[in-house]
Nucleic acid binder design. Structure first.
Length: 571
RNA sequence: CGGGGUGUAGCGCAGCCCGGUAGCGCGCUUGCUUUGGGAGCAAGAUGUCGAGAGUUCGAAUCCCUCCACCCCGACCA
């Protein structure tokens, strides 16, 4: 490829609406342009990246035995009524009517359509198992599209659906996909981690998310460095402490803490460690009853866990707190409250001689103990895992301590079991001639999101640092004075031909720009390898090589460059 | 949807409070010079000031309505 025949659309400044680095860099490098909220054009440079990701995904899916097909983006709404998902999906499902006033949707996912295909085409156990997948544009009318291509409304996704005669076979395919996804993300050159995910109503161990690790990721992940345990912090279990509660040694005492409404402030004022503090969070149940959730001073509430224990709730507002407890938020405590349910985190239940709010503005209590002086003891179902795990909590698999990191969800595999097959009557005849409902799995990869995630993971002050596998070009040739110097022009043209002949995806920047702006452009775009052709080096029969993240250049003999690059790309 | 904010040239912004000539930087066009890290000089082009209605002799500026976009919260690849 030659730059003058391609389309390079770099920008010095990023549009103001691009918030995170990957979005800014994708705009600046001319990979994408915005059409409407959450809807982007993939410019030629960006499309090359997208296609490379797609190709790797396709290759590995095919190798894993999945069969590609392509389903319509437009689906009749009836199918969604049949599966019962129409109402549940709600406004995220983009609906419209055709000229005959028939209801249609633009597909946000394809469980219904694929199940409809399979229920019509697959009748016998002899045709099972089958795994169909497609790489296709989806539309989800997100409440808040943001982060460019990472949470767009229109996006490219690989979605696969497998059908089985037995649960055992579904499990086999699930493991197959776990391994396939691992291969895909490895080939893409990304740092990633598979984490256990919520399986909702279906339960079991049947769901994993694949996260690209990046500090800016939206999800917090807890993992054990000594084992393969990893889970979304939303799910990661905080084990109950294995030490039992110590006997009380102090008597309860009111202390003056004017203006100190945060655990950290009270801890500093009283010179008592945060780990001896208890915070109480006031919530209101769906039925209207009040409850207090007790957490250690340095821990944070996990709303998902709490919801599972106490049911739907919302946070109490200031007036409700005032009228029920008689104080402002910041001074809430569990002592002397009547008719208010108290739920304690495991850690809190094992505490003694602690500090908490006095339910009186400007005061806290110290030397507080469960079962003494107006504080009921907490036992049984009122003690639960209510908090987010923190760094160095014990790993639930008992193999060491947890570490935390952040990730971007780019893949999700799920054992659907018979949820859709049942609703849509997707059945087959088994060996005994009996009609059975198929077991299903589904497996998604956010293809366009991967591009954003890769950039989020690989960038520096100069721009994108692409893994070679998905860079728009593998090598760029930057000539010094292409228009002026015939030696340079000849050498550059010849090198381009050599690289292309060696099946290296190379581009020659023949724009005759000033060197500075060519260097800046290609560093912004993130091409991993660069060769400079200049009269200076040519005199000695040498070309200059620099890797995108290298500190220095190195000189290579003109004849050995193609081989050298080939070697680099294999590393 | 709730809360906050922004719409002025392709991009980044000033002007708005206090109404009166539409402005800056980058980019773009032309010419000359320059050519190993986003060049210099000179000359140009580009705007329904988000849309509509209103107040006024006069509105980018004040008032109202709408629209779009962004940020913070509940979803997901």
């Amino acid at each position: 490829m030659r730059a003058t025949r391609f389309f390079i659309a770099t920008l010095k400044e990023a549009p103001a609406d691009a918030e995170i680095v990957s979005h800014q860099l994708m705009m600046r490098a001319g990979l994408i342009r915005r059409l409407a909220g959450g809807i982007y054009t993939w410019m030629p440079m960006g499309l090359r990246v997208l296609r490379k990701v797609e190709a790797i995904v396709r290759e590995e899916m095919n190798r894993a035995g999945a069969i590609e097909l392509l389903m319509p983006a437009v689906q009749p709404f009836e199918l969604w009524e049949e599966s019962g998902r129409g109402p549940k999906y709600g406004p995220e499902l983009l609906r419209f009517k055709d000229r005959h006033q028939r209801d249609f949707v633009i597909g946000p996912t394809h469980e219904e359509v694929i199940t409809d295909v399979v229920r019509r085409e697959v009748k016998s156990y002899k045709q099972l198992p089958r795994h169909f997948y497609q790489i296709q544009t989806k539309f989800r009318d997100e409440i808040r599209p943001r982060f460019g291509v990472m949470r767009g409304r229109e996006f490219l996704m690989k979605d696969g659906y497998s059908f089985h005669a037995s649960y055992e076979d579904l499990e086999r395919e699930y493991r197959n996909m776990y391994e396939t996804y691992t291969r895909i993300f490895t080939r893409l050159g990304l740092k990633f981690r598979a984490v256990a995910a919520d399986t909702g109503s279906i339960g079991g161990t049947g769901s994993h998310e694949f996260h690209v690790l990046a500090d800016s990721g939206e999800d917090a992940i807890a993992y054990c460095p000594n084992s393969d345990y990893a889970a979304n912090v939303e799910l990661a279990e905080a084990l109950a402490p294995n030490t039992s509660r110590l006997a009380a040694t102090q008597t309860m005492q009111e202390v003056d803490t004017p203006g100190k409404t945060k655990c950290e402030d009270v801890s500093a004022l009283l010179d008592i460690p945060l780990q001896k503090m208890v915070k109480a969070i006031a919530v209101v149940h769906a039925q209207g009853s009040f409850a207090l959730l007790l957490l250690r001073g340095d821990h944070y509430l996990n709303e998902i866990k709490a919801q599972k224990i106490i049911g739907e709730f919302r946070f109490a507002n200031d007036e409700e707190i005032k009228s029920t407890l008689g104080c402002r938020p910041g001074y809430i405590g569990p002592v002397g409250v009547n008719g208010v349910a108290i739920y304690a985190d495991h850690t809190v239940a094992a505490m003694s001689d602690f500090v908490c709010g006095a339910n009186k503005d400007g005061f806290h209590l110290k030397g507080v103990n469960f079962g003494i002086g107006g504080l009921v003891d907490v036992t049984g179902s009122n003690v639960a895992d209510l908090r987010n795990v923190v760094e160095s909590d014990p790993s639930p698999d008992g193999k060491g301590m947890l570490s935390l990191c952040r990730g971007i969800e780019v893949g999700h595999i799920f054992q659907l079991r018979t949820k859709y097959a049942e609703a849509l009557k997707c059945q087959f005849i088994d060996e005994q001639g009996k009609e059975q409902v198929m077991e299903m799995g589904c497996y998604g990869i956010g293809v366009s999101r991967i591009v954003g995630a890769a950039i989020e993971q690989g960038n520096d002050e100069r721009g994108i640092v692409f893994p070679a596998a998905i860079s728009p070009f593998e090598v760029v040739i930057v000539p010094m004075g292409y228009a002026k110097s015939e030696v340079v022009r000849t050498a550059a043209d010849q090198l381009l031909n050599e690289l292309l002949a060696a099946e290296i995806d190379a581009i020659l920047d023949d724009r005759d720009e000033r060197p500075g702006s060519m260097f800046a452009d290609w560093e912004l775009i993130g091409v991993p390898h660069r060769i400079v052709v200049g009269e200076r080096g040519l005199k000695e029969g040498k070309l200059e090589y620099k890797g995108r993240s290298d500190a220095d250049v190195q000189m290579q003999d003109i004849g050995s460059v193609a081989g050298f690059i080939k070697q680099r790309l294999c590393d």
